[in-house]
Design a protein around this nucleic acid. Structure first.
Lengths: 109, 109
DNA sequence: TTTATATTTCGACATATATCGAATTATAAA
DNA sequence: TTTATAATTCGATATATGTCGAAATATAAA
């Protein structure tokens, strides 16, 4: 088997690691559904606070914070302080990159 | 944040875990490129042995074996003994599932 | 300025993961 | 049947991960 790593393998494997935890995947899916920016990226409704994201997951705030850090560091989400809370939303380019990653793998190109 | 897990979250998080390791991702990409079944699924060239997949990765055969088991258990690849060797190939449906997973996430549906 | 709220950082700990080499199993070849 | 090849399983070990609670930090409210 010849080397089949490209320059992005490391980056993609880090995104997959971020999504390999069920709590992080759930957060990611929630953000993808509710907080995908675009036409209304400045609208408060398009973003979710750390506290909001923690609701219903049954884990400590410090753990949520840890998970969000992982999602951010892998390039899947963005975070920005807004007053007392910190707002989170999906990094839109990365979602498209992931689709292309698997389409290319499927195409065998 | 409301629960956003669906019935498949667990299964997807396991695939992402399998792809979170650089060695496994490399194996997966190699198989996707070279061993995607279809019109020639019985052709020897469409499959790769465990030994072949280990070449050039610089890790022990037992470790390759471990990684392939993870890829198989997560549903990303298939394996079948053929004489002395064990042949590996991509599970084609799963690749399409992954594309749809991210397309759906992007669509916000 | 003091207090309350939201979040992060730190230190600890239990569990999971990646890896190896040795031993084992399965098959084919001599 | 004995030997060689391919791959897996096992046991060990070092490192990484998920989690918590306590303490620290940032901001807003009183």
């Amino acid at each position: 088997m010849s080397k089949y790593k490209n320059d992005y393998s490391k980056q993609f494997s880090e995104m997959f690691k971020a999504l390999s935890n069920e709590h992080r995947l759930e957060i990611f899916l929630y953000l993808a559904k509710n907080c995908f920016p675009g036409e209304l990226s400045t609208d408060k409704e398009m973003r979710a606070s750390v506290g909001k994201l923690g609701e219903g997951l049954g884990i400590a705030p410090s753990t949520i914070s840890h998970h969000l850090k992982e999602l951010r560091q892998s390039g899947l989400i963005r975070m920005e302080r807004k007053g007392k809370t910190i707002e989170c939303w999906i990094e839109p380019d990365t979602l498209e990159d992931l689709i292309q990653f698997f389409q290319q793998a499927k195409g065998g190109k």
